[in-house]
Simulated scan of single mutants.
Amino acid sequence: MTTRREFLKTGTLAATGIFFCGCGLLQGAHAQAPERRKLPVAVKGKRVKTIDVHAHCHFHEAGALLGEEGHRRQAGPINGAEETFIELKQRLAAMDAQAVDMEVLSINPFWYDKERDLAAQIVKIQNEKLAEFCASHSDRFAAFASLTLQAPDLAVQELQTAIKRQGLKGAAIGGSVNEVDFSDPKFHPVWAKAEELGVPLFIHPRGIPELRANRLAGNGWLDNTIGNPLDTTIALSHLIFEGTLDRFPGLKIIAAHGGGYLGSYADRSDHACMVGPKGCNPDIKLKKKPSEYLKQIYFDSLVFTPEAIRHLATQVGASQIVLGSDYPYPWQLSPVDHIFACTSLTDDEKAGVLGRTAAKLLNLEV
């Protein structure tokens, strides 16, 4: 299998109809990245605006409302955490080196366990800062709003304001709220508002608190390595099995990290109620097989390898995959490489993953 870098070295990109232009894409470009690539990324000779839907940021002003606790929650001992407080020149250089034209910024919820008014202040600051920053750099950045999701009535108002007045493109949410899953009817007004506005909700997991101190302790950072994908898997499964996606068929969901484990083992969900009917509610009659709901959910491409992309596309459809890096956390510093190296995708499908699907989903000009 030929990688993008091998294509660059051998000059065979033109023969395949795929072009990667600009020195900002070379390995080591982080050290000498240009402020902007001289030539754009293109597929089959056509310009593709690459859109990374999974990129993070923080604002000191929001964390300051929690004092020292706020800084710990925003910038814990994780590589790249300090870069979430965006220094524009540094961030643009990194994006250029990654061949990312636009980042859709989001803030992982750290306020769900705070009382309503304090959480609302944090969210207000963040959404105002996100709107201001993106308006000033609209060619390179868009953003998902934060929501005070522990107070659904307030979250509905925040989402309305974020979309209608602040120009944000949807909302970022966790995997649950204080261990209450999203299928709980208390959240229905929020999903109804997102469906009405036609904007996506980006599910980014926060781990499994009840497992964190015991089974996920030890070597390997299992709280994140296993816990985060599991959190997303549980969140999506509840939305499917409890009938939430039937209730809100127009709800647009983007699941981080390739949607966790569901995309790798979705067919097991189709057999669960047949094998163990006592574990299923006979009053909930789904309109489709559980695995079929994956074809209406979007998944980011942060699954690392061409084979993983191939498998995810086979399960959910290439049209449901969008580019994601998790920047500035260094999970995938070359987020486009495994898309171009995935020989099972057509040129049109690669263009979709790289940016065209996200542009349509988020109503972004390209």
Rank of each mutant, 00 (worst) to 15 (best):
T84A: 11
S344P: 04
E61H: 09
Q160E: 14
I51H: 10
K49H: 07
K360H: 09
A155Y: 07
A217E: 12
G17A: 13
P205C: 02
F19L: 09
I163Q: 04
N219M: 13
F110R: 01
I51A: 01
D337T: 06
F187W: 13
F144W: 02
R36C: 05
Q98W: 02
F19R: 11
H137A: 00
E6K: 00
K89N: 12
C280G: 07
K44D: 15
L130I: 03
V366R: 10
G258V: 11
L149N: 01
F304I: 05
T3E: 06
Y261H: 11
P328V: 01
N127G: 04
P152M: 09
A172Y: 05
E69Q: 15
L39H: 11
L312M: 08
K289L: 15
I51R: 11
D139T: 09
Q315E: 11
D326G: 01
L236A: 11
I309D: 05
S183W: 15
Q126V: 08
A155K: 05
E179C: 02
S334A: 15
E83G: 09
L354D: 00
N363M: 06
Y327R: 05
D337R: 09
L65V: 03
E307K: 06
G170S: 04
V336P: 10
I254R: 06
I173P: 00
A31N: 15
R212G: 03
E115P: 15
T50Q: 03
F141Q: 01
A341W: 01
A255R: 10
Q98F: 07
E179V: 10
E83K: 15
A145I: 09
T10P: 11
L333T: 13
T225Q: 08
E158N: 08
P277M: 03
S319A: 14
A142P: 04
K44Y: 09
P330Y: 15
T244L: 08
T148Y: 07
F299M: 03
A171T: 02
D117T: 15
A151L: 10
D139N: 12
G218I: 12
K252T: 06
K114P: 00
C57L: 14
A14E: 15
I284Q: 15
N228L: 13
C280E: 07
P200T: 04
K360P: 01
C57Y: 14
R247T: 12
A33P: 01
A55V: 11
G259Y: 08
R212Y: 14
V199R: 07
Q296C: 05
D181F: 12
P330M: 09
C21Q: 14
L362A: 03
